[in-house]
Amino acid sequence: MKLLILDRDGTLNRSRDDYVASADEWEPLPGALEAVARLNHGGWRVVLATNQSGIGRGMFDMVSLNAIHAKMHRSLAAVGGRVDAVFFCPHAPEDACTCRKPSPGLFEQIGARFGVPLDEVPAAGNALRHVQAAAVAGCPTHLLMTGKSEHLRGQVDTLLPQAPPSTALLGLPPGTCLHADLAAFADWLLAQDPTADARASGLAPL
């Protein structure tokens, strides 16, 4: 099984200064849903690992979160993509849980659920805490320069698509690769397997 873990806010959809608290506020990033569809067609199963402390803080409830994800699934289906599962942490920081990133709990839950060694599961997201949690769990790590990391664009162009050890200056785990956005990450990942890349481009049968 080829499994991939993505962050949600700032990676798949636009992030907000407060919270994405309703389906009306959920807006996909340009090209992100299509990137997921291409990954799916390349044989990748995609799951999300996302902090949703707005629940613990009382900013929105599970009904609202379910409505957000229902809209997300419909939007993905409309372009031929899918997310197999959403793992989320509902806790506020003061709850001191083990699933709130940068703790690795969500990633460990995903590994246990799907029965896949996490060192074979790439993880990509826009937030440092996502990459840190993924690294602790043993995943190969990828930082997208969108959302919380959009300020890096233009500063590290010479590091793309693979970052040298100098990325330690950015506080990233060793070996982290940098990509402009989810579409660029999908291009990179699919290029590692030419057969999958051809399937994702519609050049070979699924």
Rank of each mutant, 00 (worst) to 15 (best):
P194V: 02
D181P: 00
T167K: 03
L178W: 02
P165V: 09
H151N: 00
E150M: 01
A163H: 00
K148F: 01
Q192I: 05
Q162F: 09
L182W: 04
L160V: 04
R153P: 12
L190Y: 10
G171L: 07
K148C: 05
A198W: 03
S149N: 05
Q192L: 14
Q162R: 15
T158L: 05
Q162D: 15
D187M: 13
L189E: 12
L182K: 01
L143K: 01
Q162V: 14
L160M: 07
G147D: 09
A135C: 12
P174M: 04
A191V: 10
D197P: 00
H179Y: 12
A133Q: 02
P165E: 10
Q132S: 11
A133T: 00
D193L: 07
P194H: 12
G171F: 07
H142L: 02
G175P: 09
P165F: 10
L172W: 05
P174I: 09
A180R: 11
D181C: 12
L178G: 03
L172S: 06
T167W: 01
A196D: 07
P161R: 08
D197A: 15
H130W: 03
T158V: 13
H142Q: 10
L178H: 07
A184G: 15
L189C: 12
V136S: 07
H142N: 14
G138K: 09
T167R: 07
P164R: 12
V136D: 12
L172A: 10
P161T: 03
A137F: 01
T158Y: 10
K148L: 06
S166H: 05
A191F: 11
T167S: 13
Q132E: 15
K148V: 04
A183W: 01
A196M: 09
C177H: 13
P174S: 09
A196G: 15
A180G: 11
H151G: 14
A180Q: 10
H151D: 11
T176K: 06
T195V: 15
P165I: 11
A191Y: 11
L190D: 03
A137R: 03
A183M: 05
A184I: 00
P174D: 12
A137H: 08
A163F: 01
Q162M: 13
H179M: 11
G154L: 11
G138P: 09
L144V: 11
L189Q: 15
A168M: 04
L182P: 02
T195K: 01
P164V: 08
P164I: 06
S149W: 00
L190E: 08
A137W: 04
G154M: 07
H151K: 12
L144D: 04
A191I: 10
Q155I: 04
A184W: 08
P161D: 07
L144Q: 03
P174A: 14
A198S: 08
H151E: 08
L159F: 14
A183I: 00
A196V: 08
M145Y: 01
L160G: 02
H142S: 15
Q155K: 14
M145W: 04
